[in-house]
Design a protein around this nucleic acid. Structure first.
Lengths: 340, 340
DNA sequence: GCTGGCACTCCGACCGTGCGAGTGCCAGCA
DNA sequence: TGCTGGCACTCGCACGGTCGGAGTGCCAGC
């Protein structure tokens, strides 16, 4: 059993060395840099076993070993403790996020902060509409037969839609509509908004029925759609900088996937607040993300994740540090959003 | 004089060949691929002159010639006609932009479209606040002593700010404030909003004065700031794809500059609607943009540019095609925004 | 079960060579 | 005067062979 334990220790050492040096690590280097208490020859035997079990691999004969995705997985699950942030880092987080003027600003700062802390690509999701509630609905007339609908959620998100109406509308109707919509939807979760519509239609005065129907339709169709979730991305320069080699040559498929948003959005929204989720290489079913790892977590109050945030980087990344950074940033963002 | 003319023809041929092949172009290749009517030897003489004048250069002895920034400049100014778009491209533009549901969506589609058409990084500026007017101001109470201010401009832009107030506010005051603000600011250009404040303060009922002052202050300070202009960026994958070599190895300074936004924002806002502006390599004073070219134009109605859009790419780009694409897209965007 | 030793593999850096593209110059020709 | 073909020259780069070193697996010994 001390057997197995040492073997895991060897794996941990391999991961740590490989992450910091970017060179395949050999038995001699391991024995030199770590106090494993055994000779290189013994380490070689352990490495042979680890390779057979699929935790490490060698790029070519007579090069050192490199962790596989499975190896990273084991490392993350059992061999690493989340590393506490330095005081300087904590202060940087506070300084960076304080003074944000609105949601857009908060998320923009968050993504820059996260990119800077982890030196990876950072990704922040806008608070999911599906978990938000209506704070206010504003109706603005932009043309004779055209209204602009502005939805303000309790998470500070503002969404707008233009609605074309079948007939011209007079200013009085707009005001009535506004009152009607607000009394019907204020405080209602967006997922429940659909249920309120029939009731709203009944109580609406005759001459507004058509209008209410049109507007409600737009509201439901466009705002409740999960596809309307947005993503802020930052730190793409980090991809181009060092890690070009980590992604066999070109980072452009990854950049494309990031801009596409939909893939990352799906992955990032499967998060709980508080639990850092790590997806390593092949575990991401999407092709462009093979070879990349995601570290994500939900932000928001304890019982309810407003959205997700995280980083995307090469599988060869410093998981403990990055997990700590992601978790800490999410916590701060949650606090700030709770205040506003 | 036919002398000079042919020399320019040679320059044009060099630019065209170099852009399409990415290889330094020699006299023989030129004579083969273009009907210049003279022999390679003569072309060599012309090239020697062009080099002396600084329009072309050779990376090393006995390689072909490559255009300099000055050479590209001459090409753009005098040797190229803006290339009309193909029917397929025009259709693609329409198809892409139709069906956008709001401003955010329009600009998002625009940036994707532009990136796809030009295979470069695309950049789109939100309609400048400084050239917009207030369509509506909404005031929402988010806490006892905290208001959210939502500004809707005539260009469809929506901006929000949270305002902390010195004392608690009751719902009636919020409604009054809303009416007051709208009657004061509706239709007013944001640049003129400052002038309206004293008047507003005078006419405001006594008990609202403090509140109005606080809110107006926030409004002015945060919304009229030109720094509040936003940028949408897309197609960064195009940078990583082919043109890594065009930017002596690394594209990451350029990516950083793009994410920083402020530099590009400054450049992109110096545009007129309708006039395509090209900045080539060294002409961009900012260091990270040396080696890059910008093709920008303003969008909006004829007399008033709402904002700018354009592309960023290597100096070695197809200027005629890209200028055409940028101009065409700007025209469509202008139309669409005018409709809504 | 660990260790030192040993033979083996193989990548990658280094180097010298040769090829080919491209040039500049020059003499000849219209 | 200006264009052309020819020619010698330059120089980067691709090619191929060599060599060293890092790393491995295996084995015998403790």
């Amino acid at each position: 059993m001390a057997h197995d334990e040492r073997r895991l220790e060897v794996l941990r050492a391999i991961v740590q060395d490989y992450v910091s040096t970017n060179d395949p690590v050999g038995s001699k280097a391991l024995a030199d840099r770590h106090d494993l208490g055994v000779s290189p020859a013994t380490i070689r035997n352990d490495m042979a076993v680890l390779e057979e079990q699929g935790y490490i691999t060698q790029p070519h004969t007579s090069a050192g070993r490199v962790p596989t995705d499975k190896g990273y997985r084991l490392f993350v699950d059992r061999l690493s403790a989340v590393k506490p942030l330095s005081v300087a880092e904590r202060r940087a987080i506070e300084r960076f996020l304080d003074g944000a003027v609105d949601l857009h600003d908060v998320l923009g700062r968050t993504v820059r902060l996260l990119a800077q802390l982890t030196r990876q690509v950072a990704v922040v999701q806008y608070p999911t509409l599906s978990r938000s509630a209506v704070r206010h609905l504003e109706v603005v007339q932009v043309a004779a037969a055209r209204l602009m609908l502005v939805l303000i959620t309790d998470t500070g998100r503002v969404e707008q839609r233009v609605v074309d109406c079948p007939a011209d509308i007079d200013a009085g109707a707009v005001a009535e509509l506004r009152t009607l919509l607000n009394s019907a939807f204020s405080g209602v979760k967006l997922t429940d908004a659909g249920d309120k519509v029939p009731e709203l239609l009944e109580t609406a005065p005759q001459h507004l029925r058509g209008l209410v129907a049109t507007v409600s339709a737009t509201l439901l169709e466009t705002l409740v759609e999960p596809s309307e979730d947005r993503l802020v991305i930052g730190g793409t320069a980090n991809l181009a900088r060092g890690s070009a080699l980590d992604f066999h040559g070109t980072v452009s498929p990854l950049l494309e996937a990031l801009e596409e948003q939909v893939v990352v959005l799906r992955l990032i929204s499967e998060v709980d607040a508080g639990t850092v989720l790590v997806r390593i290489g092949e575990e991401n079913d999407h092709e462009a993300l093979t070879g990349a790892s995601l570290v994500t977590v939900g932000y928001g109050s304890r019982d309810r994740a407003l959205g997700g945030l995280g980083i995307v980087g090469p599988t060869r990344m410093d998981y403990p540090t990055n997990m700590a950074a992601v978790r800490a940033v999410a916590r701060y963002v949650g606090q700030i959003l709770a205040e506003s």
